[in-house]
Amino acid sequence: MSNFLWVIVPYLCLATFAVGHVWRYRYDKFGWTTRSSQLYEDRLLRLGSPLFHFGMLGVVGGHIIGLLVPKSWTDAVGITPEIYHLAAVVGGMIAGIMALLGLTILIYRRRTVGPVFSATTRMDKVMYVFLGAAIVLGMWNTIAGSILSVGGHYDYREGVSVWYRSFLAFTPQPELMANAPIGFRLHALVAFGLFALWPFTRLVHVFSAPLGYLTRPYIVYRSRDRRPLGNAATRRGWDRVGG
């Protein structure tokens, strides 16, 4: 069972995530968008969207630090577990509450504003369930595990994080997860479900974060000649000379 849950399922989800993105990009570049609904409604979005997105940026950053940086490294640079714990809990709580509050506003908006609800796809709804569950479970782990210590002390940096790194290194140690508290296990499973769904939802826009905007020239010129005229692809055998 632990092999299935903590080796097979995660790798299947990871494979779906990777292959799915390649497939979606090749098959559906036109559908690759944020699918913004700002045109329909502005007021709630103005509040909810930045809260959610900046919160999520914090959450993702926290996960990268918590999962990928081994405890020995932070120990080596002299960060005591107490300081690390404090920073993680405070940072995590702020980011988590922002994300959760933002998501609540956005889902409320999506349900109550007619045009926005009409523009909601089935995939959006499924994705919201997974995303919401992952955030709630994550918050629960922070509050119950790290603050209230429900069910005894658990240091995820010696359990979940080690497993995650072993998973990424293709030498998985499923027993580490099997022994983690139920909250962490559920959180991980829901998150992997979300990763598997990811390429088939609007979440793909995350990979289009336009960081290139900071460095590219303002005005983009493009020659008609480098691409086929019109928007049809060039047929085989019709390639341009020297192209």
Binding site: D28, T121, F200
Partner: peptide, 10 residues
């Protein structure tokens, strides 16, 4: 139905 309006090849 799945990816929203306008998905697929242009």
């Amino acid at each position: 139905e799945i990816f929203g309006e306008g998905s697929g090849e242009l």
